[in-house]
């Protein structure tokens, strides 16, 4: 074999290696530089919406080609109202406001559940008002945020304690009003979520009783839009989901950085996030549990006359599967 043929062999081998490397590495087409799509995201500043906060803080939305305009709200119900009022495209909200919206006939489309917890809701009660054990709540004034998870949690808790709703006096308060109301004695207890819950716990410490109901209710925090929006903007929904999936991965891999980023983003105490972090499950999914939870809450709403509608809606009609199916099909666990 002469020198030329030897070179040819080496060249051939080099080419084969290059082809193998190319195939192994994959040859993803380069993303076309298109102008970012504008999208307004109404989000809750509560700790139930951490993935959304991370996505904003890390510019994951922009990286996916979305010019995400943040629209902060104190809690998810307000964010949902903003969407339903046409002031935002996407809302991050818990399951109870979604259920009420559906029962009111609003065209809601649930895109995914982004966070869940069984310990994000609790009742904080003043011991000096004689509330030491759950049964002591009978006859007391309890503050709740109407039409939210705190409302449903109180119902589930009282039911579990065999206390009828009429045996307590429900006072409707926003989370922001609760600390003052509790301190002023306007209410004897409040049913609420974090970070208000954490704040009250620190403030009252041993002077207050804290009642959790881990097996009574699992809060599901979701991202929703109107059905019209998801129908018209399927690509934007995919980008949104990709950004949130990035945030999910970031939260799992860099929890400390995530807490710091979220604390800075929502102007919260990082120590509270450090303490609360473990009670949250950060996963982008669509589970059958969400469906059942919505139906459970619907039955509650119907039974207690909280909505005008008296029949059970088919929540499958209010879930937008295509987005999550496209970007993370294994996360779609709802039977459909």
């Amino acid at each position: 074999m002469n020198t030329v043929s030897t070179r040819s062999v080496f060249f051939l081998l080099l080419t084969i290696c290059a082809v193998i490397g190319f195939i192994t590495a994959g040859c993803k087409p380069q993303k076309q530089a298109a102008p970012p799509e504008s999208i307004t995201i109404a989000y809750s500043t509560a700790t139930s919406d951490i993935l959304s906060h991370i996505a904003f803080a890390n510019n994951f939305y922009l990286a996916e080609g979305l010019e995400a305009i943040p629209q902060p709200h104190d809690f998810g119900k307000l964010a949902l109202q903003s969407v339903l009022n046409g002031k935002a495209n996407i809302a991050t909200v818990a399951d109870t406001p979604i259920m009420f919206a559906v029962m009111e006939g609003r065209p809601v489309a649930i895109i995914a559940r982004i966070q869940s917890s069984e310990k994000n809701e609790a009742i904080v009660a003043r011991k000096d008002r004689g509330i030491v054990k759950p049964r002591d709540l009978k006859g007391k004034k309890i503050g709740v945020t109407r039409g939210t998870t705190s409302d449903f949690f109180l119902y589930a808790f009282l039911l579990d304690q065999n206390i009828e709703r009429k045996q307590v006096k429900v006072v409707h308060l926003t989370p922001a009003q609760m600390p003052a109301a509790l301190k002023a004695g306007k209410v004897d207890a409040v049913s609420t979520w974090n970070p208000t819950l954490f704040q009250l716990q620190k403030e009252w410490n041993a002077k207050a009783s804290l009642f959790y109901g881990e097996h009574l209710y699992a809060e599901s925090f979701c991202i929703v839009a109107t059905q019209e929006y998801v129908k018209k903007n399927p690509e934007a929904i995919k980008k949104l989901l990709r950004a949130l999936i990035k945030a999910e991965k970031f939260a799992r891999e860099y929890p400390e950085d995530s807490r710091r980023l979220v604390a800075d983003f929502i102007k919260a105490d990082k120590a509270s996030l450090d303490e609360l972090w473990e009670i949250f499950d950060f996963r982008i999914t669509l589970t059958q549990g969400l469906l059942l939870s919505l139906e459970d809450q619907t039955r509650w709403a119907i039974r207690h006359g909280l909505t005008a509608r008296r029949d059970m809606p088919n929540y499958l009609d209010y879930i937008y599967f295509d987005g999550l199916k496209a970007v993370k099909p294994e996360a779609v666990r709802i039977i459909h």
């Binding site: 039911l159 059958q288 459970d296 039974r303």
Partner: peptide, 23 residues
Amino acid sequence: TEAQARIISQVFLKAYSLNDNIS
């Protein structure tokens, strides 16, 4: 009773979750 029904509802929810976990 309503309370029992809620518990059963939660049992269903857990059953779905369990099934989901197994899957």
